[in-house]
Design a protein around this nucleic acid. Sequence first.
DNA 1: AGATAAGCGAGACGGTACGTCACGTCTTGCA
DNA 2: TGCAAGACGTGACGTACCGTCTCGCTTATCT
Lengths: 195, 195, 195, 195
Amino acid sequence: MEVQSYTPTPGRPRDQMVKASILAAAIAIIDEEGPAGLSVDAIAKRAGTSRPTLYRWWRSKGEILLDALLDVTSEQVSYDHHISLIDDLKFHGRDYVALLSGPYGAAYRAVFTDGLADAPFMALVRTRLIGPRRNVTKTRLEAAIMANELPCDTDLEALIDALYAPFLYRLILGHQPLSSEFSDTHIEHTMKGYI
Amino acid sequence: MEVQSYTPTPGRPRDQMVKASILAAAIAIIDEEGPAGLSVDAIAKRAGTSRPTLYRWWRSKGEILLDALLDVTSEQVSYDHHISLIDDLKFHGRDYVALLSGPYGAAYRAVFTDGLADAPFMALVRTRLIGPRRNVTKTRLEAAIMANELPCDTDLEALIDALYAPFLYRLILGHQPLSSEFSDTHIEHTMKGYI
Amino acid sequence: MEVQSYTPTPGRPRDQMVKASILAAAIAIIDEEGPAGLSVDAIAKRAGTSRPTLYRWWRSKGEILLDALLDVTSEQVSYDHHISLIDDLKFHGRDYVALLSGPYGAAYRAVFTDGLADAPFMALVRTRLIGPRRNVTKTRLEAAIMANELPCDTDLEALIDALYAPFLYRLILGHQPLSSEFSDTHIEHTMKGYI
Amino acid sequence: MEVQSYTPTPGRPRDQMVKASILAAAIAIIDEEGPAGLSVDAIAKRAGTSRPTLYRWWRSKGEILLDALLDVTSEQVSYDHHISLIDDLKFHGRDYVALLSGPYGAAYRAVFTDGLADAPFMALVRTRLIGPRRNVTKTRLEAAIMANELPCDTDLEALIDALYAPFLYRLILGHQPLSSEFSDTHIEHTMKGYI
DNA sequence: AGATAAGCGAGACGGTACGTCACGTCTTGCA
DNA sequence: TGCAAGACGTGACGTACCGTCTCGCTTATCT
């Protein structure tokens, strides 16, 4: 068991409230005003802080959104073994759709916007935001292989892509609604193709 | 048979060379220097023209890329009935993958970047770039329904999403390579789920 | 007496109407909209012509105004020997004040604006606009010297400056009204100092 | 005796060096390259600063020149009672001529150029640049009236115009040199007319 | 009568400067 | 040392005029 050692740093300690209010401000702006209104300055202003303080904690606007999303996502992502593989995936899919449809959807979109323009940041998005979620599903799928519910030579990366890509595709393009019904039927069809 | 009537517009006619060189410059920059180097000024400079000329014909950087992509895409998209539905889709998939992997892949990414930050522009992307390509596939799938190769109640929009979303997903995220092998197996699995 | 030889040039002859309508347009714009609205394009548009045509006749906006002013000024400037030197000068002064106060005052101001930014053009203004008017006065003053109404060693350039500079000063600065009363008393005082 | 209270404004204080270098740059450019070279960008570049910084403190090129001129002018303008009214005015006249003939003459011209094209700015020129200098002379003339050296009903505004208009006239038109000799004789003649 | 040549309108073109926005970094005073 | 306030240099943006060009058409003179 690790003992969290207290390292007394000189000077004034960092204000955790500042961090929280910045994350909240970022989400509030992107949700209310859309991506156009999300300038670093606007975030700082809304959080009642200043740009330098903001840059002390994060290297870019994108990383703020990333942290804000991780705050919300982290506890949600998990599989409580339900009845069957397909039901678990459906449950997870509905969960994801709910997240992307809600106020955090715009943040997701903004994170991809930044990532597309900045490769190292996209790597971070993969590692911290997308990767963990994929891994949860991967673990569930590996369990399914163990249980002979899935062929043992299944390309899990491809399957996970097939399962979730359409969600982000609809989030990004907006050509079709992103509903739980779509999630359910899409997951059914996809899994039928892989079993 | 249609007779092309000549409509002489008053004033100096638009220089088609300028248009072409701007489209070429945009693609060259995004391919060579990445999205960071793609400023309106850089495009104008490389094309040997000026910013005002550029804004005379396009409202934004994004629309330039859109036009550049349409120049390339337009003739490519078509289905020459091959042997079977699955082979046709595979052929088309490989074609798409080749486009996204080549020098135009970066332009595709940039178009999505701009679209994510600007909803009206994303609508344009849907209408002009994504829509036509989807429609070609839709026509092929409808023919398949006619030929009883596919259930008549198939949700074509969902199927098309399932087919192509992973391509753009990999293009955008870059977590896995976008290869013809992936295209083939992905399309096989997907269609298996829908038949 | 000179015989104006007719030199038939090939091609379509210049349309004098165009010239007239451009001069009128320039004066109309500067009078109605002020100097800010006086772009080359605005003149051409208002005159119902095009920029290239305009540049065929004049080298710059300033030269248009110059010509417009000369059209008006040319016949006005003259001394009909009245009663005395002082009365002639007063008459001339009132005439000048009337010109500068009317719709052509703004054109005068604009001519100086252009001249201040473009030395060769200011030389033209001196030669064509200011010079002739000064010469008329100079001639009158030289006659006065002949008539012993003025010392023969009078510095005429300095005297003419003293007489008219305040008019342009008030036109340009606008700190005090440019009235006939001012003209009269100013000319009286000035001549008193030189006699 | 006044106690200068220190009012600490929040945030980083304005860099006075930047202000000084911008003013110096403006004067240097107009003097060396003439009015054509005086773009906002050129000033910023020469001052080693940026356009936004420049616009933070001045609304236009003209206001920069105005400040630059005020820096120089402010201490110069004063009358140390010399011997007589006429000598004081001559002294002041030579001072003015020296200013207009030197490197600041071009700045003066540019200020008028801008003022002619922008009435509100010309009002500023009157209030800040021309007015104070006129007032100094006005005070001296009022003292002269008190001392019975001048009629008590003298129109001081008109007299001041008569005294100084020819200086600016020659500065602007450039038809005659602006020398101390001219200043002396002109002031003598003018005052002779008003006494 | 037809050829030739220039004027004319419209409007595209390359260019320069403008005034503004957002960024990321800095320098203050206070906590 | 953290923090707010805010100034600073940088780079890109979208726009306004400028002066020149290339069209199709018109209007004259010259063969």
